[in-house]
C-alpha cells in the first residue's frame, strides 16, 4: 500500500457521502430522479472505489464476495417474489394493490420492494464483476 496519503484520506472523506447519496437516490426515487438501478450502481461504485484505493482485501472485508454473489439472484427473487405475492393474494402477477389495506399505500409499498430488489441485484452484480475481473488479473 504505497499509495499516496492524499488519495487515501480523500477517498475516506468522500466514502460516507457516496453511500449517503446512494441511499438518497434509492429512497428519494419516489419524489426525485433516481431509483434502484442508479442507487445500485452508485453503491457498487463505492465498493469499487474502496477496492481501487485500499486494495481488494479491504473491499472484500466490507462487502464479502460470497454475500455480493448471493445478492445477484436475491434481488431478482425479491422482485419476482413481490409479483408472486400479488398472485397469491388473488390479483395479477406484479399487481401490488393487494399488498396492504389501502390500494394506494400498497402500491407505494410494492414500488419500494421492487426498487429494493433492483438495488440489490445491480449493486451485487457490479461489485461481483469487479471482483471477478481483478482476480483474473492476479
Amino acid at each position: 500500500m504505497s499509495l499516496d496519503l492524499i488519495l487515501r484520506i480523500g477517498t475516506k472523506l468522500i466514502l460516507p457521502f457516496i453511500l449517503l447519496f446512494a441511499l438518497y437516490v434509492q429512497f428519494h426515487g419516489d419524489y426525485g430522479p433516481g431509483g434502484g438501478f442508479q442507487a445500485g450502481v452508485i453503491a457498487g461504485g463505492m465498493v469499487i472505489l474502496i477496492g481501487i484505493t485500499f486494495g481488494l482485501g479491504t473491499a472484500k472485508r466490507i462487502a464479502p464476495q460470497v454475500m455480493v454473489e448471493r445478492m445477484v439472484p436475491l434481488g431478482v427473487l425479491i422482485y419476482a417474489g413481490t409479483g408472486v405475492a400479488g398472485l397469491l393474494l388473488g390479483k395479477n402477477f406484479l399487481d401490488y394493490g393487494v399488498l396492504g389495506h389501502d390500494p394506494v399505500h400498497a402500491r407505494e409499498l410494492g414500488i419500494l420492494l421492487v426498487e429494493l430488489g433492483v438495488l440489490i441485484t445491480v449493486s451485487g452484480t457490479m461489485t461481483a464483476l469487479f471482483y471477478a475481473f481483478v482476480e483474473r488479473g492476479r
Binding site: G29, D30, G32, P33, G35, P103, V104, E108, I111
Partner: peptide, 10 residues
C-alpha cells in the same frame, strides 16, 4: 392518485 408516488418516471 393511484400509486401515491409523485415522480411519474418511478
Amino acid at each position: 392518485v393511484e400509486t401515491g408516488v409523485p415522480n411519474v418516471v418511478t
